[in-house]
Design a protein around this nucleic acid. Sequence first.
DNA 1: TCCTATCCTG
DNA 2: CAGGATAGGA
Length: 555
Amino acid sequence: RHSLKIKISPSAQCSHLGQYCHQVNWSCSSFKEGMYLTKQHSMAAGSEEDPPHNEHHQAKRARVENIIRGMGGSPKARPHHEWEISGTSVKGSREEKWMQMSHTLEGGCMPRRTSSIKDEERHSLRQQLQNMQRLLKHLQERFLQIDNLSETQQEDGMEEVLPNIMYCHNTLLKKEFLEWPDCALRVDPDSEFERKTRHVRMSQKQTVQKSNIQIMHNKEDQELLEVLKHELSRAVSRSVDLVFKNFSSAISNRHPRLLAGLDCNSELSGSPEPSLGADVITAQSLPLQFKQNVPFQNEILENLLKYGPHDDLRVPLQRILPTDTSSPQILDLPWSSSKACSKLSSSHIDTEATETQPASLGQERMEAACFSQVKLEHGNLQGVVERNPYLSLNISFKDTEEGLTPNHLKKAKLMFFYTRYPSSSVLKSFFPDVKFNRCITSQLIKWFSNFREFYYIQMEKFARQAILDGSGSTRDLSVTRDSELFRALNTHYNKANDFQVPERFLEVAEVTLKEFFNAILQAKDKDPSWKKAIYKVICKLDGDVPDYFKSFACS
DNA sequence: TCCTATCCTG
DNA sequence: CAGGATAGGA
């Protein structure tokens, strides 16, 4: 199809709002939603009678395409994010995918959801689509306006006569958007906008240049370019505001607890100054006054990364949590580019897992659930950044946590199910949000020492009990999830019982019990250091701690 | 001397 | 679980 294509490439420098657009794919998606609808609309209206385009016409069109493409600058930076607003011969498959996704989001294939949820989701999505449609229409009208003016006031310049168009509530955003990754907008070739644009192009006398980085020679082209830039900036910032608004509504309605900690998060940031500049997002238009603090905003960010653009937080857990422990971070979320598999906020777990389906949770989900108390903070945010190469935040993070928290302790206890003797390097790598120093390291080591102590005391106790009970052989001994011994251990290390203890731990526990049993039976306990031999055996049974423990930052 | 582990105590 | 004492290895 013949269409006007606008390509925009990314920038290293991000404005704050721009970062959100970068990071939070919903903004792109929302934009797509609007464009997609518009495209559908225009196709329905005009696909039957596409006028034949002669060579001259096509050449003109190609030129403008190149001009617009030239706005983007370096093509190097493109390949990662290819936004396709609508399909073309090149991106046809993407359009299909997008259409399928739209269809899905429209409510077609969500067997797990209730009809009311679907309706709500559908309604929300439709609202966004309609808003985007309006935005596009508005955009096109602007172009027409400009075009008309350009015919009469070419010498005056656009900025004087169209101050409104030049308006952008966030100049950084404007810059950011202009340098966004590939963003292809397709406009109906038969629209008035397109006809007018064609008219502008026809007034050009310069030859077509095929380079993507084409220098503007013609004033009209430059004007058109400027107008496109500013209008696109506005459209995107409005779409961002819109989606943010929807999202904030969703959060405040469904997850009031998530918002409850806003003020204390401000305290946590340790600075009266918002880490994101004042030009981030003006909360006017928003039902919720966003506090401009990193933790909360990035909680939103992370939620968005996890849940997608349709502001529905009630995504079934299996879509969030790793299904493959070996690569828990690679998730096939419906909107593809999200790679976030991060800690879970308490709201999600509480509503999705522990309350609604506690018995049916698989191991991985339970493992994730164990971190239900985790709140997104500085350390976690860094994790988010690391997991998402698109995020090049210039937010100044506060340093990592100064001390160990109860959640760190909880995490350490769970790690004990895998390793009884973690090296300090393991500890460092599994507590990336902890600022290690001598004291902290010692404390962590002490924790594991205490864990071992309890573990071995239990083992000795149950081994002696077994002997007293008349067990004559280790064949009578076993450790299962029903064992009293296991229950004692589980209560100690996994008090909330929201973690599926790995089978391997049961095996190690059984070996340990048998070691104690045999040693006592053989009266080795008369030697003051009789346990050392057992420790030596047990320390060799350490396993690797799953990598996803690294991902779950504690605070 | 430093670090780590264990034991003991509260 | 933390603090102190103690022991052993580097």
